[in-house]
C-alpha cells in the first residue's frame, strides 16, 4: 500500500475538516501522498469496520473525553490512535499534526 489513510474525528467532523485541508497542503508541500479526511465521532465505528479502514485515527481535543471508548475501537481495528495537540489544533497547524500522524504510523 503506497497510500496511507489518516482519519480525523470531532463531534460533527466540521472543524476537523478545516484542519484536513491544512494537512493536505502540508503533505503536498512535503511531497508525500496521504489520504486525509474528517468525520463525525458517531461515524467512527462505521469507518473502522469498513473494508477501507483508515491507517490512523486522530481525535479533536474537544472529544478527548471519548478517548477510552475510541481507543478500544481503534485497538480492535488494529490501528494507532491519539488526540491532536490542543495548540496545533487551534492554530490549525497542518504540518505539525501531519508529523504526529506520521509518528503514530511509524510507531505501529
Amino acid at each position: 500500500m503506497a497510500q496511507k489513510t489518516i482519519m480525523l474525528a470531532c463531534s460533527a467532523g466540521m472543524s476537523t475538516s478545516l484542519l484536513v485541508s491544512k494537512m493536505q497542503a502540508a503533505a503536498k508541500a512535503a511531497g508525500v501522498d496521504y489520504k486525509i479526511f474528517a468525520t463525525a465521532a458517531s461515524d467512527v465505528p462505521n469507518q473502522l469496520t469498513s473494508a477501507e479502514k483508515p491507517d490512523v485515527l486522530m481525535l479533536g481535543p474537544q472529544i478527548a473525553y471519548m478517548k477510552n471508548d475510541m481507543q478500544k475501537q481503534a485497538d480492535s481495528a488494529g490501528i494507532p490512535m491519539d488526540i491532536i495537540n490542543m495548540q496545533d489544533y487551534g492554530m490549525m497547524n497542518g504540518a505539525s499534526v501531519l508529523n504526529a500522524a506520521e509518528k503514530l504510523l511509524k510507531d505501529k
Binding site: L18, Q62, G90, M91
Partner: peptide, 25 residues
C-alpha cells in the same frame, strides 16, 4: 493569525480555532 484562520469558520458558527488556539479553554 488566529483571526484570519477563524473568520470563515465563525460565519458558519464554528470556533474551535479560538477555543484551542487562543485558547479559550
Amino acid at each position: 493569525t488566529l483571526g484570519k484562520i477563524e473568520l470563515v469558520p465563525a460565519i458558519f458558527n464554528i470556533n474551535e480555532p479560538f477555543l484551542f488556539g487562543l485558547p479559550l479553554v
